[in-house]
Each structure stands twice: as C-alpha cells, then as structure tokens.
C-alpha cells in the first residue's frame, strides 16, 4: 500500500523535475509566430515616418534594444555586418526599448548605425509585440508574417540563417 502510494507520488515528481532541465526558464515562445505582424506607424530619429504595411515584399528585421543592455551592445556589430550584407534584400529597423533618445544617438554616433532607429513612445509597439526584455528580434517574411523571435544577443550565423529561411 505505502509502496504504491509512495511510488505514485514520487516517480512522477522525479520525472517532472527532470523535465524541468529541458526548458530554459528565460525563453518564452511568442504567440505571434505564424501570424501577421502587428502593424505600426513610428517615427525614426530623423523624424521620418515608417509604416510597417508599406514594407511588404522583403523580410523585415525588427530589433528592440537599449543602451543599458549589455547583450544589445554585443549584438550591435552583428547587426551592422548582417544589414550590410543584406542591403536591398531585407529591411532592418531598431526600436528603442525604454531608453533615452540622447543616449541612443550618442551610442549610434560612436558605434555606427545599421538601419533606421524607431522611437516608440509609450512603448505601444513593444507591448503589441510582447517584448519581455532587450534585445529581442522579430523576423518577418515578405508578406508580413512573424516567422521568428530571438531573445538575447544573436550570433552572426544565426541571423544569417533565419533571414535566409524567410526570404
């Protein structure tokens, strides 16, 4: 009796805890994958308006970042290189995630730009994309469907591969 009850309680528990190792507590799958990307209309640092709906036909890389985030700094050169390589074949946009405009501008002056940087007042776009932190990158295909979400800094090969996949 005790053996049966004890076994019924303890074995599933052990299996369950072992399963816990498989998952990374920090990665959260986006429910937007496979769905049309939330549309937006934002201004970039120069004041030009960017409408997502007008960008159909090429993949779009949407990178939420901030200067206070270490992985974003690590990722910056990766984005510069990839954006160069994909120039004319994909759109690259940065979206400021809870940061001051002046800091962003100084950062870009020092380390170079890789695409228009969009200002997201009130974080409405970050909320519509369900951003859990910075950096997060959304990759949209030519028809405006969200294909990938990457949380954390991307390796150069990773971004290349994902872009190749959607184009």
């Amino acid at each position: 009796m005790a053996l049966v009850v004890g076994g019924l309680i303890s074995l599933p528990l052990i299996v369950l805890l072992a399963l816990g190792f498989r998952s990374d507590p920090r990665s959260i799958e986006s429910p937007l994958l496979g769905l049309p990307a939330p549309s937006f209309e934002l201004e970039d640092l120069e004041g030009r308006t960017v409408r997502l709906d007008e960008l159909r036909g090429r993949p779009v890389v949407l990178n939420f970042w901030a200067t206070w985030c270490q992985p974003c700094i690590v990722e910056h050169p990766v984005l510069i290189r990839t954006a160069e390589r994909w120039a004319g074949r994909a759109h690259f946009f940065g979206v400021i995630y809870h940061d001051e405009r002046s800091k962003i501008e100084r950062f870009l002056r020092e380390r170079g730009e890789w695409g228009p940087t969009l200002v997201d007042p009130g974080s409405d776009v970050a909320i519509r994309y369900g951003v859990y932190g910075a950096p997060e990158t959304f990759i949209l295909d030519g028809s405006g469907i969200v294909r990938h979400k990457v949380a954390g800094a991307m390796r150069p090969s990773e971004l290349e591969r994902l872009l190749a996949e959607v184009s």
Partner: peptide, 29 residues
C-alpha cells in the same frame, strides 16, 4: 508603460478580461 496601457484600455471601457487577452495575444499565457 504596461500599467499606463491598462489604464487607457480600462478608461475606454474594455473589461478586465478584454485587457488581459489583449496582452495575452502578444505576450502569451
């Protein structure tokens, strides 16, 4: 920022459940 968004939605008359599912569509369960 999310709190301000919630406030705006509630002020516009959306219900608690509507607000929660609004955020759920982008952030997940």
């Amino acid at each position: 920022a999310m709190k301000r968004k919630i406030e705006r939605l509630l002020a516009a008359g959306y219900s608690e459940e509507q607000v929660l599912s609004f955020f759920e569509t982008s952030y997940g369960e």
